[in-house]
Design a protein around this nucleic acid. Structure first.
Lengths: 204, 204
DNA sequence: TTACTAAACAGAATATCATTCTGTAAAAGA
DNA sequence: TCTTTTACAGAATGATATTCTGTTTAGTAA
C-alpha cells in the first residue's frame, strides 16, 4: 500500500485513524464524482463516519479538500527533495526533476488526478495564501539549486523564470492527458525521453 | 472589445443579448470568486436578470459553466485552425501552433483563466462525453496535419502521442503560472523562444 | 390588424445540501 | 479518582440550487 505513506506522515498513529479514513474515502469520492458533485453525505455514507466527526476534524468541505491537497503536494515535494540530494551536476538535477515527477504521478495516480482537479478550488478558497507561499518558496528553492549547480559554468539559458516550464511542461501535459484517459501509454514509457528533452531545451 | 467575438459567434444577434449578458457576467463571477463560491444569486444580482431567465437559458449552473467553456475552447480552436492554413512547412506549423496559443491566452486572459479552472468540472459533469469527443477529434486533426506536412521527410520524432505535449507543454505551463499571478512577465515576451524550443524538441 | 403559438421572462415554492449546535462518550492528564 | 479536553453523534438550521406556475413578449399566419 504505497498510498498509505501519503497520509501516514501528516496524520500518524492510531489517534488519527478516523481522520485518515475520512480523507482516503473523500479522495475516492472527489475523483469518482468530481469535487462539486460529492456531498458531505456521500463521504459520510462511504466511510461510515458521522457529520459531526467530519466537521470536527476538518471544519468544512474546503477543509477536507485542502488537507488532501497539501498532503499530496508535500509528499510529491518530499520525494523530489530526497531525489535531488544525489545530484552532482546540472544535467543530473534536471533529469532527476523530470523523473521524480513522472515516478510520483505513476505511483500515485489517484493523488495526482486529485492534485490537478483540486488546484483551482484551493487557489480560490481560504487557503490561497498558504498555497501561494508554498509555491513561491518551492520555486525559489529549485531556482537556487539549479543556479548553485550551474555555478559560473553558464551551461544554462538566461531566463530563470522560464526554467520550470521548460523542464516540467511537456511531462506535466502528458501526465494530465494520461490521467484523464485520453492517452493510454504510461508516462513511464517516455521517462528518459522527457528528461533528455528537458535538458536539451534549457541547455545551450 | 475583442472579448465580444467569443460570445457573438455562438450567440449572435439581438435575440441572444440577454444570454450573452448572463454569460459575460457569469464569467467574471467565476474568475473573481471561483466556481464553487459563485451562486446563481451572485450572477443574478450582477447581471440584473431573474432566476427564471437564467434557468430558462441554461438549465442549471453546470449549463452556464459548459456554455462558457465550449465558447472559449471553440474560439481558441478556430483561431488555431485559421492560423494553420498558411503553414507550408512542418516547422512553420509548429511555430504557428505555439504562437497562436500564446496569442490567444494573452488576448483573452479572462477566458484562458476560466478554461484552466473549469476544465475539471466540465470533465466530470453531464457534458463529459462532448468534451471527450471534441478533444479526441482536435488532437486527431492536429496529428494528421503534422503528418501531412512531414510527408515522408521524416523530420519528426516517432511517437505521435508525444508531439502535442512536447509542442505545447512548456508554453501552457508558463501561461498557467502567468494567469495565476505567480509570474509577472507576459508569455508574449517568450513567444519566439517557446516556438523555437518546441520545434527543436520534436525535430531530429 | 388580429388571433395564435412559442419563446422569454419573473418570482414564489421546494428540495438539496453545507454548516451549526447541543449533547454524550471517551481519552488524557493530574 | 477527578477534571479537562478531545472525539464523536445526530438533530436543527440556514444557504443555495432547482423547479413550478403564471405572465409577458416576440414571432407568424390569416
Amino acid at each position: 500500500m504505497p498510498d498509505d505513506d501519503i497520509l501516514e506522515k501528516p496524520f500518524p498513529g492510531r489517534r488519527s485513524a478516523l481522520k485518515r479514513n475520512i480523507l482516503e474515502n473523500a479522495l475516492a469520492c472527489f475523483n469518482e464524482l468530481g469535487v462539486e458533485a460529492t456531498t458531505i453525505d456521500t463521504i459520510k455514507v462511504r466511510c461510515g463516519a458521522s457529520v459531526g466527526a467530519i466537521y470536527h476534524h476538518f471544519g468544512n468541505k474546503e477543509g477536507i479538500l485542502s488537507a488532501l491537497f497539501f498532503c499530496a503536494q508535500d509528499n510529491q515535494r518530499a520525494k523530489l527533495t530526497s531525489a535531488l540530494e544525489t545530484a552532482k551536476t546540472l544535467k543530473e538535477a534536471v533529469h532527476l526533476i523530470v523523473k521524480s515527477y513522472v515516478d510520483w504521478v505513476t505511483s500515485y495516480p489517484e493523488w495526482a488526478r486529485f492534485l490537478f482537479q483540486a488546484r483551482s478550488a484551493v487557489a480560490k478558497g481560504p487557503h490561497q495564501q498558504q498555497l501561494r507561499e508554498r509555491n513561491i518558496e518551492n520555486y525559489r528553492e529549485l531556482r537556487e539549486l539549479l543556479f548553485r549547480l550551474d555555478s559560473g559554468a553558464n551551461e544554462i539559458i538566461q531566463c530563470q523564470e522560464l526554467l520550470p516550464s521548460l523542464i516540467i511542461g511537456p511531462a506535466e501535459n502528458f501526465c494530465r492527458a494520461w490521467l484523464s484517459g485520453r492517452i493510454q501509454t504510461s508516462p513511464l514509457e517516455y521517462r528518459e525521453q522527457f528528461a533528455e528533452s528537458a535538458w536539451r531545451s534549457i541547455h545551450r
